[in-house]
Structures are given as C-alpha cells and as structure tokens.
C-alpha cells in the first residue's frame, strides 16, 4: 500500500499538470468553428459581447443591430491593409444605408485615440466598438487584421473574409445575407 503511494502521487500530479496544460492551450487557441459551419452552408449565431463604443460613451452589442444586415469589420489603426480597405468600407456603408444595413467596426488592440484619428483621417462614419480584452476577436477566431464577417438580419454569420476584404466579396456576401 505505502509502496504504491509515491508513484500514485507522482501520477496524479503529472495528470493534473497535463490537464492544466491542455485546458490552457484549448482556452487560448483560436476557434475555426465559424469557418467550418459557413463553409458547409450553415449560418451559425454570431458571437456577441457588450463592448464600449469608440465614438462617444455607452456600450453596444451586435444584437442591438438585429434586423439589419451587419458587416462586422475587425480593424486597428496600425494595420496597413485596414487603411487600404477603408475607402471600400466607406462606399459599402453608403450602400448599406439604403437597405437597412450597417458596418460595425471592432477595434483590436488599439489605443482609442489612434482609432479615432484613423477614422477621422479615412472619413469613416460607421460605429466602432472597442474589443478591449480581445475576447470578441477570439470568439470569431480572428488572428490577423483585417477580418470581415457579414451577418444576416437574424444575427447569424452568412459569410467570412479573413484578410483584406474585396468589393466582390462584399457584394456577394451582402446579397446572401439579404436573401434570408
């Protein structure tokens, strides 16, 4: 009995450490379940969190925009492709306003003063939320900027673009989101 005590203790400790390691890796790994679901023609519910608005005070959730076609764009002022796609997003915002839709920017690891300066420089007028702790980005599996998700009027993900968004993608994705 006592002879088995030490090996048992060591085994329990090793299993515990292994469990902590596996949980830590799993908790911090980026999800790709949204991509898989969308690739199979499904529309998974869009992950959501209450986040502070970049412009002005208050908090917003993506659910607050339910009933509209929502283009969620993760961006940061330090991201060069984000600056390159800004004119396209501005044109898209103007088009979306005619069909009950909007772009919602989500800033990622960015100083709010820099984000505001970026929006002013690029004449962007759509609302942006500040994903302060990066939890929303993690829920969307965002690993690099920019990334764009198009949500239908029921708040489900209809299309995903990881990387700089193209006008062709936006046209097709918005049409798809409207069709539901």
């Amino acid at each position: 009995m006592r002879r088995a005590l030490i090996p048992s203790l060591v085994a329990v400790c090793a299993a515990g450490l292994l469990g902590v390691l596996v949980y830590g890796v799993a908790a911090r790994s980026h999800s790709r379940t949204l991509d898989d679901a969308v690739a199979h023609g499904q529309r998974p519910p869009a992950p959501d969190r209450s986040l502070p608005l970049l412009q002005g005070g208050g908090q917003r959730r993506l659910a607050d925009y339910r009933g509209q076609v929502v283009v969620v764009n993760f961006w940061a002022s330090w991201c060069t492709p984000c600056a390159e796609e800004a004119p396209l997003l501005n044109r898209t915002q103007a088009a979306l306003s005619h069909i009950r839709g909007t772009i919602i920017g989500v800033t990622f690891r960015d100083l709010s003063s820099d984000s505001l300066a970026f929006m002013s420089e690029h004449h962007s007028t759509y609302p942006s939320l500040r994903d302060v702790d990066g939890k929303l980005a993690q829920a969307y599996g965002t690993t690099q900027l920019p990334e764009t998700f198009v949500l239908d009027r029921s708040g489900r993900v209809a299309a995903i673009s990881r990387g700089e968004v193209s006008s062709d993608f936006l046209r097709r994705a918005v049409a798809l989101a409207q069709s539901s």
Binding site: G16, L17, L111
Partner: peptide, 25 residues
C-alpha cells in the same frame, strides 16, 4: 485601453491563477 492582458504579471484569479498555484503545488 488593452484589457488586463497588458499587465506583464498574470492576474491572481480565474485560470490565470494557475501561474502561481502550479509552481506552488
């Protein structure tokens, strides 16, 4: 601006407490 992850020391609650508890254990 950046959330608690900006602090170099992990927080002492939640899963991050493992950073202190595992070496202790």
């Amino acid at each position: 601006q950046f959330g608690r992850g900006v602090l170099a020391l992990p927080p002492s609650h939640g899963f991050d407490a493992a950073a202190y508890l595992v070496p202790l254990a």
